[in-house]
């Protein structure tokens, strides 16, 4: 999709900017990835015995695929509320630097903090990536409206997918039900690998995959946290070690 030039009269009015943002969601492969991911999340919520409303609210209010999957699978495997909350909050820490990075792109001289609340809510990996791509082509005074449109569009895609996934899991044969559930690990594995820029990211992913089955033998109830902290710390250490060697 090509947006009009920055000084075009087509940018007059917030509603038009909102519509451009909404339409931008149809111009990205990430919408397809988002759709596939949330089909998996809807199906997972069904097969771990959560209600349709629960699945819908989790997509609208949590709005973070990894956190939703962690929440569903930890609660589904019988862990306590506290253990789930800790695992969710660890996975959500990455939203903090994302919000910090996105807001300066959107903020103008007269922007108040309350104008940015909804944008902070919409911020997740997909919106983050798309802001870097689209915002240079959006006049600064229209960026809030544009991102509201973009975020609404992405959330609508995810919401429809959540509902479809939930219904599919309820009505499909066992084979196709299994295929829908397999979407989640595949989509997350490849999209995380694609976004991995540093050695530390790839190492953390690989070690996390390998160490979880080992940690699961402990049966501690916080196996995912244990394997995550150990694998993440090793990956970080390896990154620092390489950095220091290169500096020397």
């Amino acid at each position: 999709m090509t947006l009009p030039p920055l000084d075009s009269p087509q940018w007059d009015g917030s509603l038009k900017a909102f519509a451009f943002g909404l339409r931008a969601t149809s111009a990205t492969i990430l919408s397809v990835v988002l759709f596939v991911t949330f089909i998996g999340i809807g199906a997972l919520a069904h097969d771990t015995h959560f209600s349709m409303l629960w699945a819908i609210l989790s997509t609208v209010l949590v709005w973070a695929g990894p956190a939703q999957i962690i929440l569903v699978s930890t609660l589904g495997s019988g862990q306590t509320i506290l253990q789930s909350a800790i695992a969710v909050t660890m996975s959500a820490i990455r939203l903090f630097p994302m919000v910090v990075a996105v807001l300066p792109l959107i903020r103008g001289p007269n922007t108040k903090r309350r104008h940015l609340v909804l944008i902070a809510h919409f911020t997740a990996v997909t919106l983050w990536v798309e802001c870097y791509r689209f915002l240079p082509h959006v006049p600064r005074e229209r960026r809030i409206a544009f991102v509201h449109g973009l975020g609404s569009g992405l959330m609508a895609v995810a919401l429809v997918a959540t509902i479809i996934g939930y219904l599919l899991a309820a009505n499909l044969s066992q084979t196709f039900g299994a295929a829908v559930l397999l979407l989640t690990p595949l989509a997350f594995l490849f999209s995380t690998l694609r976004n991995a820029k540093e050695l530390a990211d790839v190492l953390a992913l690989g070690l996390g995959l390998v160490l979880y089955p080992v940690a699961a033998q402990l049966n501690s109830g916080v196996d995912i946290l244990i394997s995550g902290v150990v694998a993440g710390t090793i990956a970080f250490g390896a990154h620092k070690w390489r950095e220091r060697r290169e500096a020397a």
């Binding site: 990455r94 992913l205 196996d223």
Partner: peptide
């Protein structure tokens, strides 16, 4: 460090779905 731990936790969840699969999987 936080980013690396968050990535590894997500990897753990991917592994959990494959090792201890839910429902039809």
């Amino acid at each position: 460090w936080v980013k690396a731990v968050a990535t590894a936790i997500l990897a753990g969840v991917i592994a959990q779905i494959l090792v201890q699969p839910p429902g039809a999987l």
